[in-house]
Design a protein around this nucleic acid. Sequence first.
RNA 1: GGCGCCGUCGUCUAUGGGUUAGGAUCCUGCGCUUUCAACGCGGUGAAACGGGUUCAAGUCCCGUCGGCGCUACCA
Length: 476
Amino acid sequence: MLPRARFDHPAFSPMSVVTRFAPSPTGYLHIGGARTALFNWLFARKMGGKYLLRIEDTDRARSTPEAIDAILDGLSWLDLQHDGEITYQFARAPRHREAAEEMITRGTAFRCYMTAEEQEAQRTQAHAEGRAIRSPYRDGKAPPSSDAPFTVRLRAPDDGEVVNADLIQGDVRIKARDIDDLVLLRADSNPTYMLSVVVDDHDMGVTHVIRGDDHLTNAARQIVIYRAMDWAPPLFAHVPLIHGEDGKKLSKRHGAQAVHEWRDMGYLPEAMNAYLMRLGWSPGHDDILTKEEAIPQFEIGQIGKAPSRLDFKKLDSVNAHFLSLADDARVTRLVEEHMKARGDAALSDDSRAALARATPVLKKRAKTIPELAEQARFVLAKRPLTLDDTAKKLLNDDFKQRLSRLRDTLEKEPAWDHVPLGSALKAFATSEGVGLGQIGPGLRAALTGGTPSPDLGQTLELLGREEALARIADQV
RNA sequence: GGCGCCGUCGUCUAUGGGUUAGGAUCCUGCGCUUUCAACGCGGUGAAACGGGUUCAAGUCCCGUCGGCGCUACCA
């Protein structure tokens, strides 16, 4: 069992900050969850505190080991390492029951013997009266029989209001009449989410609960549970949700929601982090920053209250930024993996080397890995090249004469480097009495068959002397 | 239905009552130029609506509209 909390007083020092990310393993790591994890991680690092991970698997029917792996995978891809051991919530059910029992003893919770029908009737009545549901057993009404099944319910406050001084949303006040006698222990004696979160957050010493604002109204109900146990509640920060490009709640039809899908689409984890952190949060000046750069600047109070939308175009540009900065060998590997995943034949050693040579140039020009793979086609193409229609037109008989002369010039080039090669091209154009516009497109057609490629000097260099000259020779 | 939260360019956002409402991205014009990009310089584009408080409101208050959440023996 975990040690009891040592943070029963809100006057903790910054060093004692404890945050947590608490996903339920019923699917993949959602990008909204990823951002929540990021915010928790950022805040803990900023404060020199701890960032904990808890798997909320109390829903036995919907929780799966595969989902746990997927979530752990996603978090590790994003390099969001948690401190300490992972807490599995279901394993702590005995402790949760113990807390429920304690509340019964304290008189802040009670056994409720309502049948499903009675409950439905109560619900209807509460609905009609515009208030939350209350149990007839809350004040000690005798059970219908000694062996009647029961749930354990929280005894909601009779009057007053509960105030959550939310770090993002400001003071949120809920009146007592709107707080229900919620179920703490089910009839099978398993704890509900509402009980488990409170007990676990308390026992784990969580000081700041940063989560999606779908939990905003739950905070008030949870505060009541803290009071029922005579525990000091943590500080809450409810982050607005992320919506799809159409402004609607994220759902299946928006496509990619899981982080592994973004990885497969060729986005870099550092780009995902940079993009996600700026959804709802702004440091004021910098637009693109790594999570390490964000640590000192991170402020919960700077998180906006309005939901934000996904914008793939913006993500693309953020990804382009990090792609151009990424390590060459890593990018090359990612491109290879992408080509393999899309079903291409494995690269020969020569092709792999050619790709590796091209990566430093190409990574500056591409937004994503698939796009880079597309731009690398010209290096990987095998002779004789297949020409597209434009290339065929460019390579007419007249031009072939000129191409032949260019080849002779190029052959004499001592250094096969893009700078002198570029100069040689200009000098050749001058000697032919034409502009580069009369040379470039045709040469490129011969060199690539029509697919896009970088600057011609670069293209020649990346192809290598032998291959470049051979491709030209193929066309004259 | 009840309760709660939200509402600045298309999008992400800055703006602690007084600004020509700033930046990024997208779109777009021009430049560079051998394609495509990249890059450089410009441009279009915003305070949901209506009241009020105030000398002064995007900023404070109220209402309307719109979006979202909770209202489960899901989390």
